[in-house]
Design a protein around this nucleic acid. Structure first.
Lengths: 189, 189
DNA sequence: GTTATTACGGACCAATTAGTCCATATTGAA
DNA sequence: TTCAATATGGACTAATTGGTCCGTAATAAC
């Protein structure tokens, strides 16, 4: 018994995610964002509550869409090939590329924002789990050494992925970044 | 033939660095910072030019003090012990710890700010160089395998350091983060 | 159709933002 | 001692910030 919402909630959320992702939380102005997605303030506050609430919603949405897609990709094909695919994606990043939103939130906000921190941690743990599964499958298939600690190796892979994304942002030579991949893979063998 | 500056330039710069480092660039307000360090606006603009100019100066100062201290520490004692010391420091980080300022700048600003990016890159390359030297020394001393590509391994170590700092911010279990160290060190053997 | 309920546009707000300006104070050199 | 040059405090500004409020429009249940 009420008026229907005229905008697409998820479309607006994706738009906001894109801006937070590209520019960071503080550098994204509400007015600018509402202008870009074409939403009035009252509609925004009615649907999302506050800028901070929307960030949390955008972070959740990132995890359940973008991150989940990455995780699912880790399940496709041979574990080793999937892991190489994952790192090839990262190694292709340029300074302006949208690197993982979890890292953006972790570095800009997690230290002082527990709600962000909890979500970032959960996202990282999901990724780590996916790596662990891939490693375990690779070990069972004889692609990787069977005596490796799959979870420790998964944490190791996650750390390397985020480290390499930081180096991409810093514009460190792509040629040299790429030379770390054999070293990383050797840890699994 | 002019009035003398009453404040300590480097002391103010260090204060600003501390705030940018802890809270990020956008979240640090000029008024707040000037209040904390006890400086008037006219003095600030006379000495530093703008908020952005001060960030660049703070970034340079970070590199020539904090980062250089880390680099010098990598030269002390046995290469292997120095590298372990470096990673032990990182593995002791909590979410609220001041992780490397280069990472803060890289993730918040480097994508859209070339002047920041150039400085971050330079800092990272200095760190990488120090790792390369340590690895080369370790190889000569028989601590590490002599056939490793010292520079690629150095990039690998830098990436792992930054990745682990991101995981510390995300509050990923310290116990599991620590289990990556043997894996990292094994790449050198 | 009436009504309760929600959505919408946009005016409005107080606070804060980075940055400017000027009158005054202090200096070293001539 | 005068003078050119720089430093200082603080008032001031225009723009922007996140957020509130209200009159009006649209809807579904009755």
């Amino acid at each position: 018994m009420a008026r229907l919402r005229e905008f697409d909630y998820e479309q607006v959320l994706d738009g906001a995610l894109g801006l937070f992702w590209r520019d960071g939380y503080e550098a994204t102005s509400l007015d600018g964002m509402l202008g870009e997605v074409g939403l009035s303030k009252s509609s925004f506050y009615g649907a999302f509550g506050s800028k901070h609430d929307m960030l949390l919603a955008a972070l959740d949405r990132y995890i359940e869409t973008v991150l989940q897609a990455n995780i699912e990709d880790l399940r496709r094909g041979s574990p080793r090939a999937a892991i190489v695919r994952h790192f090839d994606k990262i190694l292709g990043f340029q300074p302006v590329s949208k690197t993982c939103f979890l890292q953006v939130c972790a570095v800009e906000l997690a230290a002082h924002d527990q709600l962000v921190r909890m979500r970032v941690r959960r996202g990282v743990e999901l990724l780590e789990e996916a790596f662990r599964d891939a490693i375990a499958r690779g070990q069972a298939a004889g692609e990787f050494a069977a005596d490796g600690d799959a979870r420790a190796l998964a944490t190791f892979l996650v750390a390397n992925g985020y480290g390499l994304q930081m180096l991409a942002r810093a514009n460190l030579s792509a040629d040299w970044r790429k030379k770390t991949l054999p070293i990383i893979l050797k840890a699994l063998e």
